[in-house]
Design a protein around this nucleic acid. Structure first.
Lengths: 199, 199
DNA sequence: GTCTATAGGCAGATAGAC
DNA sequence: GTCTATCTGCCTATAGAC
C-alpha cells in the first residue's frame, strides 16, 4: 500500500519542499531557485515536472485538500463524540503550528489577490469543505446534548474555522504555541454544554 | 489643526497607496513601480522620500499603529459600556473589510518570515497593544457584570484579536461581509452575561 | 530526467542633470 | 523634488545537449 507511486520520487520531493516554503514564506515568498537549491537540482529540472509555478501551485492545493480531507475522515473513525472531534480538529491546526507553519490555505487567503486564478477556487473550497465537516459534527453534538450553541450549525462552523485560522496566524509570529492553544480552548469551551463546561 | 504638515504631500500620498497595496496584495505583492505608476511619479522620486522599501514599510507601520491607537481612544470616548466597546472594536475590522482589505498587521503576520526585520517587532507590538486595550475593556465589563467569561481577561483578549483577524482573513477572499459579521457576532455573543445574552 | 546556457522581464536601488 | 538613465540581481521560462 505504501509507495504505490510518487512516494519519494522527484515530483513528490518538489511538492514537499514547495509546500513547506509556501506555508512558511508564502506562495510569493519562494522561487523555483529555492526549491532547486534545496533538492540539489536545477530550475530546469523543476520545469520538467511542473510546467510553471502556477501548475505547481495547483498540484500543491490538490494534494493539500486531499490530505486534509483524509485527516478529517481519520478523526471521524478515531473519535466518536462531537466534543472530542472538535478537539481533534483543533489539534490538526496545532500540528501545523508545531512545524512553525501557517495553514496553506490561510496563507493563500492572505495572498488571494496575487495567486494564480486557478488556485483561488481551491482555497475557497477548502474552507467550505472544513465548514461542512464541522457543521455535521456540530449537528451531531447538539442532537446528543453534548454541544450547545445558538443559531445554525453552519454559522458556528464558520466561526470555528476563521477563529482557528486567526489563532494560527497570530500565534506563529510570536513563536508561542500556548497562545494558539489558549485561543482554541476558549473558542471550543464556549460550545460545550453546561454539564461538561468550564469549572 | 488640519494639514499641520504632510496631509496631502507626496510622502503621505505614497504612504496611502503603499498601505492600500500592502493590505490588498501583501507587502511582497507590490513594488515601487506600482506606487510610482499610480501617482504618476518615477521610482527615483519614491526613493527620495523613502530610502528603500524597508524604510517605507517601517513608516507604514508607525502610522498604522498610531492611527489604530487613536481609533481605540475614540471608541473609549464615544462608547461607555464594555459590550458596546467590543462591538465598536469589531466594527473597526469591519471597516477594513468594507474596503476589501486585510488588516495590515494580519497580512504582515502571514508574511512575517519575509518582511524586513525592523518591521517584525512592530507587528507583534500591534497585537499586544490591541490585547491590552481589550483586556481593560473585559475587566471593566466583568466588574460591572455586563460581560462573563472564564479565566484571565488577557486570555480572552487574545482570543478576540485572533478570532477577528481570522474572520477577516477568511471572509475577504469570499467577498462576503456577512461572513465576517456572523463570526464576529458569535465570538462576542459568548461573552455577554446571561441577562443580556442570546435569545 | 537532468543538465547548461540563455532569454526577457521586473525587482530594488543609485548617479547625476534639472 | 522630480526626472532620465542605468546597474545589478533575481525571477519565470525555454531550447537543446546528454
Amino acid at each position: 500500500m505504501t509507495k504505490v507511486k510518487g512516494d519519494t520520487d522527484t515530483a513528490t520531493q518538489i511538492l514537499d519542499v514547495a509546500e513547506r516554503l509556501a506555508q512558511v514564506r508564502g506562495f510569493n515568498g519562494f522561487s523555483y531557485a529555492d526549491i532547486a537549491a534545496e533538492l540539489h537540482l536545477t530550475k530546469a529540472a523543476l520545469h520538467y515536472h511542473f510546467a510553471g509555478k502556477a501548475e505547481l501551485g495547483e498540484a500543491l492545493m490538490t494534494r493539500y485538500a486531499t490530505r486534509f480531507s483524509d485527516a478529517l475522515a481519520a478523526v471521524e473513525s478515531r473519535v466518536d463524540d462531537a466534543a472530542g472531534r472538535l478537539d481533534a480538529y483543533a489539534d490538526l491546526y496545532l500540528g501545523v503550528l508545531r512545524k512553525e507553519r501557517m495553514c496553506l490555505c490561510g496563507m493563500l487567503a492572505a495572498e488571494y489577490e496575487t495567486i494564480p486564478v486557478p488556485m483561488r477556487d481551491t482555497v475557497l473550497r477548502f474552507f467550505e469543505a472544513n465548514e461542512e465537516w464541522l457543521t455535521r459534527v456540530l449537528e451531531q453534538g447538539r442532537a446528543e446534548g453534548q454541544l450547545q450553541f445558538a443559531g445554525p450549525p453552519a454559522d458556528t462552523a464558520r466561526m470555528i474555522v476563521s477563529s482557528l485560522e486567526g489563532a494560527l496566524l497570530v500565534a506563529r509570529p510570536f513563536g508561542d504555541i500556548t497562545r494558539f492553544q489558549m485561543a482554541a480552548t476558549q473558542v471550543l469551551a464556549g460550545l460545550r454544554a453546561a454539564s461538561t463546561g468550564v469549572v
